[in-house]
Simulated assay, not measured.
Amino acid sequence: MNQSKHNLKKVAVWHPYFLGGGAESVSLWILEALVPHYNVTLFTLTSPDLHRLDILYNTHLAQQKNLTVQPMLPSSLSPSLIDRLIANNPRIKSALNHWAVRAFKSMNTEYDLVFSTYNALDMGRVGIQYLHWVHVVDPQPHKNKGWTRLMMKFSGFSMDQLKQNQSLANSYYTADRIKLAYGIESRVIYPPVIGEVEVVPWEEKEDAFLCSGRIVAAKQTHLVIEILQAVRDRGFDVKLHITGGGGGTYKQSYEQKIMQLADKNSDWITVYQDLPYKDYLQVIARCRYGIHRKPEPFGISVAEMVKAGMIPFVREKGGQVEIVGAHHDELLFDNNNANAVEKIVQVLKQPDRQMALLESLKKQQSLFSTEKFIAEIQAVVAEYFQN
């Protein structure tokens, strides 16, 4: 770009913390999309380790001259301590979120654009917001009382201001929830999904399932283990690779439970934690199947499975249905583990059907890529400045 840094328009991006997961990936790739064209400042509670995040998410942010990180908390406070408090105490998480909202509103007045990559937000002025889900920073109406009401008052949080922002959604499923929650329309931009997976012929892949994402209770990893144990009991010698996604600081007890289960079943379960991006690609390249138990607003890990040429089994509701395709009913299971086991067994015992599914799933792959995501984010911001 010919313009100097001083001549570029200034964009303030709000993302309060980086604890791992899909929202983090989206935020980092939004920064990746913006820094070649704008002078970008990331407002966050504590300085993230950009070198580490680049390794985990295949971004290239640590050396970007057009990116400035503006921590909103004093540098004397330990980032690891703040992360633990956010992960384990909902009231402290809420308090820090609203403190960050208040601070951001007071610090963003000199910028040409404000952009929340962490859900719907009152930024003190009209901007762009990318929603992974609804009522994340703002409360659900029936919960707007007591502590929550106090926090909203502290940050001066205006729902009317939030509704004036241009909204982006991670799926049509989420867009419908945004309409119900806020009465506003949103533009769907699917999250960035890796594309450069080594192509391993099906016959050379492992008879293994991938379960990818943070190892937390909400992801129901223990139920994935139960489902695949039942599949094994039906005579299918499948393996399970569990990857910890972006990692982060979350409650440790559940993670320990999963590690213990894996140790007891080490002949068929392997757990990988905080894998560098290149190593993660090697794991997913060699798995034939994927499984995801939790209904998701989108489900980046499921999209990665599709892009990697796997056959993924997912819940029948949520954004992940858009990824797999609603027409692939045999890959969609309900809340009953027995239903999941039956769907998996039916596919496993029909090699010809597996080949047909793989061919059909290829049509879904073009919906998701980092290149498509970058182009769409850049177009939204360019349009914003043209209006």
Rank of each mutant, 00 (worst) to 15 (best):
K278M: 00
L96K: 05
V380P: 03
K65E: 14
S266V: 06
K5I: 13
M305D: 04
T148S: 10
P36R: 12
M151V: 10
D267P: 03
W147F: 15
G247H: 05
I311A: 13
D267A: 15
I178G: 07
I284C: 00
E204V: 03
T243D: 03
V197W: 01
A87M: 08
A87I: 13
M107Y: 02
I258G: 09
G156M: 10
N336V: 10
K251N: 05
V324G: 10
L8M: 11
D122G: 10
G299L: 13
L113D: 08
K219N: 04
T109E: 00
V188A: 11
L223E: 11
K264N: 11
W268V: 02
V199H: 08
V271C: 10
L121Y: 12
E226D: 15
T68Q: 15
Q3K: 15
V13N: 07
A100V: 05
L281I: 00
K9S: 04
G244K: 03
N336D: 14
E330N: 13
D329V: 07
V324I: 13
M159S: 05
L150S: 10
Y272I: 07
S301T: 15
Q166C: 14
E185N: 13
S75Q: 14
I30K: 06
S369W: 11
R84K: 14
Q378A: 03
Q273E: 04
G319L: 01
F298C: 08
C211R: 09
F115E: 01
W147K: 01
Q229W: 00
P79W: 02
N89F: 12
K93D: 07
K257A: 01
S27R: 05
L77V: 08
R177I: 14
P276G: 10
R315S: 14
Q320N: 08
G20Q: 08
Q229D: 04
E255D: 12
A95T: 06
Q164W: 00
D267Y: 11
G127D: 04
H51F: 13
R293Y: 13
D352P: 00
